[in-house]
Design a binder for these strands. Structure first.
Lengths: 343, 343
DNA sequence: ATTAGCACTCTCCAAGTTAGAGTGCTAATA
DNA sequence: TATTAGCACTCTAACTTGGAGAGTGCTAAT
């Protein structure tokens, strides 16, 4: 579904006007701000065509036009690769801020999401590397207190996770050693999600396990692996609320509810493919029902070639896509660079 | 400033009515719901007295009365120790939920705040033990990657914190050993906040430090100690928004802004004294300006006799104090019990 | 193919009106 | 003296009304 050049220009004009200030865009406004040498009447005709094609819609008769999700999609797809001056300036502001992160690799993501939200005035999110595909190299069980043990998962060169778990009976250090030997023998060298699957199976077949050692080990592993270990950082709710788009309180309710359940957001971001580059989900394109009112601009960051975590921006469908894409893209590149270079 | 019995009853009545549904309470409503054998005219006179005393106020002439913060304070102070039936029932529902936590000591606080918000329909918060007063027993510096080192802080029997930090020059393992020896010699055995203070001093006097080893060590410590290490969990924003109190969007803006900066909330909760029992800050009593529109019900939980972290509920000043106190109190006791018993 | 002009539609806002709730006061009552 | 009934008064919230403004769609002219 392609448009002739002029219609495309007008669609762009309408969208840009709508982005810069909400409220239906009228034909006269277009002629004023984008002097294409056409009268408002002509614009009207074209806008009427665009509506028929599904790019625009009218909230009610005799109001201006508002972009549809399809319209935004067209707009985003035709966003030229070359950055506008404003975006270039933005990128330089970012690099200043990002440089401060170099020092403190650990709180990277928290800072990143905060920066994204500050600069965009939308919601910034960032998710730590998902360790599902990490190879488990060792597991260590340490007595901690009566009825509690500390479990530490190691990957090749780093601690994946450490957690304190309660157990039924008190266990001696030698009990724990036997347990961890068993677990290591059985699981080390496999990826976390594989281990997780195997364990679930094992539990399903629990009846045939007569050895209580094994069943205890299984249960411990399940507990440790159960938690989703991705840290997720969300910030900028207050920025978002300040937008005129949210004068209606009900839209916020839904959003808040959704954001509060971090699992939902994690699930959403897992759907981001590992493909290079920044991806844009506009309103109804969003894989998550709860998010169909919003748009998501997201990108993976990597270490070398291995995709790690995700960062992104959530905003209203009436979002400054060009800016958001610049923000997300630059940040993802930067994190990738640091992770890869500091290796 | 004490009240004669009858006035007290009427103040209680007004507050209870106001808590159960917002909007000014009129004299007739009181006579209807609390048949004290008085006519509305008498109630009117008494309410007028209560207003003069500062317990109630009138939003405008010829509207009903609304409790002031002073009024709530009176109400909370006279809340009888015996629990109402509803609160007792609530407590039993809680103990069921709380029992599920036994298994997973690690994600205690997250769950606790979620439960508090679910049951109260206000905002639940919980803060992990503040390690400021923890005694540092060892610090360990481990080479991690080029230009990065892992720093691990140990207390007597547990890891306080581990963090990855970037350093200017590449450092060999032996460099790091020398560094950590220096740090351990200098700081181990002191509490974290003492160490923090000393380090800040040292940095202030930096000019007289000629030894680059020492100055590098100082800087590393500062970076590790800089972050506030308390985890804070906040949940229930969406619950809160559903209250009729927040039909006005502006009150939410402020709240959101405040909650988003976790440091503010941490600072607020640090003001909770270590005294036993649940404390209530009503509206303007609140030590934090940003929170003067809200009430806070909070309590410390302990391990044995040592105060650890804090849990609490943030709600509108028109809050169900009786219920909130039950919730916070029960939860704090439960956590204390588990921490102490599982020792 | 484009444009000017005009009738029509819809929203937004401000002003006016009414109904309802609640008070304060005064005079009557126990 | 404490309480109550009754009434006038006040204030708000909700609804109506009537432009003003913005924008469209259509038609006829260019």
């Amino acid at each position: 579904m392609s448009l002739d050049e002029r219609s495309g220009q007008i669609l762009q004009a309408v969208i840009q006007l709508y982005i810069s200030s909400p409220g239906p865009v009228g034909s006269r406004a277009v002629t004023k701000k984008f002097p294409l040498g056409l009268s408002s009447a002509t614009i009207r005709n074209i806008m009427s065509d665009l509506e028929e094609l599904g790019f625009l819609r009218q909230p009610h008769t005799s109001a201006g036009r508002v972009p549809t999700d399809v319209g935004y999609r067209f707009y985003v797809d035709t966003l030229t690769a070359e950055k506008s001056d404003a975006d270039a300036e933005l990128a330089s502001e970012m690099s200043r801020k990002l440089d401060l992160f170099r020092k403190d690799v650990d709180s990277f993501l928290d800072n990143a999401s905060r920066m994204l939200s500050e600069l965009s005035h939308y919601i910034g999110i960032s998710v730590s590397p998902n360790s599902n595909r990490t190879i488990l190299s060792r597991i260590e069980l340490v007595p901690y207190r009566k009825n509690q043990i500390a479990v530490v998962l190691f990957a090749e060169d780093t601690i994946i996770r450490s957690k304190i778990i309660s157990v039924e009976q008190e266990m001696s250090r030698s009990d724990l050693n036997r347990l961890s030997d068993y677990i290591n023998e059985r699981f080390s060298g496999y990826s976390l999600d594989l281990v997780r699957k195997t364990i679930i199976e094992e539990i399903a077949n629990e009846r045939i396990i007569c050895n209580s050692l094994i069943s205890e080990a299984t249960r411990i592993c399940r507990d440790v692996l159960a938690i989703s270990d991705s840290d997720i950082f969300i910030s900028g709710l207050s920025e978002m609320i300040n937008l005129p788009d949210f004068c209606d309180i009900n839209r916020i309710r839904g959003l808040l509810k959704t954001l509060e359940d971090k699992h939902i957001i994690l699930g959403l971001l897992e759907k981001i493919s590992d493909t290079d580059g920044t991806q844009v989900f506009i309103g109804s394109e969003n894989p998550l029902d709860e998010m169909k009112q919003f748009s998501l601009v997201a990108a993976r960051y990597k270490e070398g070639n291995r995709p790690m975590g995700t960062i992104g921006i959530i905003g209203p469908t009436r979002m400054n896509y060009s800016q958001a894409i610049t923000l997300v893209d630059t940040t993802a590149r930067f994190i990738t660079e640091i992770l890869t270079y500091n290796r």
